[in-house]
Write a protein that binds this DNA or RNA. Structure first.
Lengths: 334, 334
DNA sequence: CTATCTTGATAGATATATCCTATCGATTGA
DNA sequence: TCAATCGATAGGATATATCTATCAAGATAG
């Protein structure tokens, strides 16, 4: 019975203290309500790290500095933004709203810097992208022509799950993503459809089923499979197809790495299921080692495309990427 | 007793590492590129005042402070933003772009504050509006029901020309405006049509034409008229109608004040042309002193409505006003 | 239940930034 | 030519930002 009382008392004390501090502050001469964008970045970092120390490190400052920054925000708004016990306990409702605006303002300020820089030095900088594993091979069709037009632009490409991509986008940690457009709610994003994902069986040339014109999902379910881990949407889609046949699939190996899956398929002991376009793009079927066999049955296709923030205007780099995506889309959509 | 030693060693290592990182990060220790929103406001003030001293006064700082603020912005971006000779000579192209972003960021930061405030204290604050003179009487139909719902909200309403309203809106000096929707290019705004402007002749009860069922534009052109000044779009519209009859209109008095026009019409020596709705809303025709006579001829109507920034989301106050406008619009559009 | 670790807050010191007043130099106008 | 206007600059007072070091309150492991 001691804890609740102490906790309540602590909170009460916090609120009282904050009010008192606010009262004192109002007498100070300057910076009554100076909003520094860097402090908003503190809030963003805190939102993704959920830890004052880690957030501080991410911002390149010490923990007391970040704590003070957040507290200053709370003082300017006159509201507690973060629920604190002995540790970070999430944001208050007001904090959530401020966080939303902070994302927008920080994004805009970055876009502003980038645009001015682009006016001076042409389109340059680093585009941060993330793609679902099965779309990784497609990134090239976007980046290669883009770089031909804008040689000064650099890329960072991460392999992530579809949900992670949306979260990264929301937190301004990436500029755009390549992911499914039609399965999960996308939220506030600009989407450019690029191609449809169709599935094929990938097997070694000397493995069973390799000489077939086509196979059924039921047959696929009976060979030892290596697939992506279940946190990937691609895996869930394929697994659904397999289970719909009534046969319990034989998924003997899973990984989050496409390279690992390939290397196993090459041994002839495993097979895998992957998007048709992926196999051909990588030229895996050019050698005589691997075959990709069409899978019969209901044509399940999933639209994959570029997602960027729904903000208007976009940063010059992101805008150029979206333009590039719109340009190549017709040649990909069969 | 092994742990403390290890811990100390770890901490020592951490500190060394941190120092090293900081050393690499910057030669200047702090604030290499700190963006303060207040400085962006300096830029907005400079854009509308076109004068360093006046802009400084508008921001509540001295001129050197504003000069330094602008210069700091220029240093952060590494570009000149303002063309200076011995005086303010406008913005550079980069300056114009920064100005555009500054408007957006400043607007968002205000909206953020307002929203947090609204979460704490309910919808409160001051709505800054501007309306064209002929729409002034209509403002009441918007503000009265609005205040009934949100009693804590205060209003500031300015009488301005339609072009001024758009400029004020652009510079965040007003939250919304009441103006013509279909005559001039509106730019980036949200528009809510409210009603159509139709014209009537306003005359004293004992003046010529007062007993007519209706009059023609040609007849109107022959009586001494008092109208708004030519910078008002309303005046230009009416004048066009009059000239189209081929008769040179007899505009013997012009003013930017509707009250002045009324007081002259009441003498019986002048007549005026005004929107039908305006006369009835003010109850001018209830007394026996004034009559409003329908004008025959081509039905020229001009749509009038509420304009607000095209930004999304709007500030809570502006959003509530737009909602209110949408609510009352059906009862106004006949 | 105790010892230890983790986490965020706080204190004190110092460097930095901000702002004001006063003044200057250049242009503009009379 | 002289005064007025405009924006830049210098110098000094003061607020602010950041660091290091440390603390106290949970959480955790033994």
């Amino acid at each position: 019975m001691v804890f609740p009382i102490k906790l309540d008392f602590f909170r009460y004390y916090c609120v009282l203290f904050l009010r008192f501090t606010l009262f004192l502050k109002s007498k100070h001469k300057y910076a009554d309500e100076v909003l520094v964008i860097d402090k908003l970045e503190f809030l963003l970092a805190l939102a993704r790290e959920k830890h004052f120390g880690h957030a501080a490190e991410a911002c390149g400052v010490t923990q007391p500095t970040l704590s003070a920054g957040v507290k200053q925000l709370e003082e300017t708004f006159g509201v507690l933004l973060v629920n604190r016990g002995s540790r970070f306990q999430g944001f208050t409702p007001e904090g959530d709203r401020v966080l939303d605006w902070a994302r927008r303002i920080v994004g805009d300020s970055r876009a502003m810097r980038q645009e001015v820089h682009a006016l001076k030095h042409g389109l340059a900088g680093r585009l941060r992208l993330a793609a679902i594993p099965t779309a990784l091979a497609m990134v090239e069709t976007l980046t290669t022509p883009f770089r031909a037009r804008h040689p000064a632009v650099q890329f960072t490409v991460l392999s992530r799950t579809s949900t992670e991509i949306l979260a990264l986008l929301e937190n301004l940690e990436i500029d755009a993503g390549l992911t499914y457009l039609d399965n999960e709610p996308l939220g506030r994003v600009t989407a450019v459809p690029l191609y449809m994902e169709r599935y094929r069986l990938l097997v070694a040339a000397d493995a069973p089923l390799s000489d077939r014109e086509s196979v059924s999902w039921a047959e696929v379910a009976q060979v030892p499979l290596c697939l992506l881990t279940p946190d990937m949407q691609n895996r869930r889609i394929i697994e659904r197809m397999l289970r719909d046949t009534g046969v319990e699939p034989n998924i003997t190996l899973e990984s989050d790495s496409m390279v690992l899956l390939y290397s196993h398929v090459r041994t002839g002991r495993w097979a895998s299921v992957m998007p048709a376009r992926l196999a051909t793009t990588l030229g895996l079927t050019d050698s005589d080692k691997l075959c990709s066999v069409p899978i019969e049955g209901p044509e399940v296709t999933h639209s994959i495309g570029l997602v960027a923030p729904a903000r208007e205007p976009l940063t010059p780099l992101t805008a150029a990427l979206v333009t590039q995506a719109r340009r190549i889309a017709p040649s990909l959509l069969d």
